[in-house]
């Protein structure tokens, strides 16, 4: 039986990002493409990838300080390394001969989680904003509660310990970013707290540092999720692709003695 009433949905998809000027002879063919109003060919000639990435996410071309900050963050986190769960997932697929186009999506889906993953970005960005507005410091002794299992401590999403201590490289990257002219109020406020708190057990985690930079660049929390996935993509891809060229036996497969059924 057909529905007699209209479903009431829009007749057209709408977007404020992408405009295609149709060809006069073929309405399916675009004659020119514009991103937030700029012709993509002009962007290709005059702007960098990071310029256009920020244009897509914010609607406006960034200034050079913002590009420098974003570029440094992207390079800093371009490869989370073969021990990162998302990268490991993609590498496991690579070594076990999964279809090559699946490798990056497998890594990105694993990266989608709330623990060190993209979903934590949104939570982290919101909690930074709330703490900043209310003036409540994230780094304080009252929040420093040991994990009952002896695992890592999380003060708020994006901030805590990694294998029982401050994440060394992330901390050093934060110091570098904090000195750039593009660093803004969120990065400065959080880094000052971390240095003042001076406790080597906790500090910046990659999610927290990315969140602070995104906020300083005017990125919205939901958009931050995707941007974080984009930043990690090259590393996930190459680490997985490298494994595809090796025999399946070149990655560990635990022996029965290493597998305990309780």
């Amino acid at each position: 039986m057909e529905n007699k009433d209209s479903f009431g949905y829009s007749k057209k998809t709408t977007t404020a990002i992408y405009y295609e000027k149709p060809s006069s002879s073929n309405p399916f063919m675009a004659e020119s493409v514009h991103l937030h109003g700029y012709n993509v060919l002009e962007l290709a000639q005059k702007k960098s990838f990071v310029d256009v990435l920020l244009l897509l996410f914010t609607g406006e071309l960034p200034d050079e300080n913002a590009v420098e900050l974003m570029n440094a963050l992207m390079v800093g986190f371009i490869n989370p390394g073969p021990r990162n769960p998302a990268v490991r997932a993609a590498m496991t697929a690579g070594i076990s001969k999964s279809n090559t186009p699946h490798l990056l999506p497998i890594g990105l889906l694993t990266l989608g989680g709330k623990e060190g993953g993209a979903e934590e970005i949104e939570q982290s960005m919101k909690s930074i904003q709330e703490s900043f507005l209310s003036g409540n410091e994230i780094f304080c002794m009252s929040k420093l509660l040991a994990s009952p299992e002896g695992a890592d401590i999380k003060l708020v999403p994006g901030f805590g310990s990694s294998y029982g201590q401050r994440c060394i490289v992330t901390h050093e990257l934060a110091q570098l970013l904090n000195q750039l002219p593009g660093a803004g109020k969120y990065l400065h406020w959080l880094n000052k707290q971390i240095l003042h708190f001076n406790n080597e057990k906790v500090g910046w985690l990659p999610v927290g540092l990315s969140s602070a930079v995104f906020l300083d660049l005017g990125i919205q929390p939901r958009e931050g999720i995707a941007l974080f996935q984009i930043i990690y993509s090259p590393g996930i891809s190459v680490q997985a692709l490298e494994q595809t060229h090796k025999p399946i036996s070149s990655m560990p497969f635990l022996e029965d003695s290493q597998y305990e059924l309780k």
């Binding site: 057209k12 998809t13 709408t14 405009y19 295609e20 000027k21 700029y38 002009e42 962007l43 609607g59």
Partner: peptide, 21 residues
């Protein structure tokens, strides 16, 4: 392109006017 092919104008643009860098 068999599945619901779209004219360029089937996607409505509601962003800023065309501009130059």
């Amino acid at each position: 392109h068999s599945f619901l092919p779209q004219y360029c104008e089937d996607v409505k643009y509601d962003g800023v006017s065309l501009r130059e860098i």
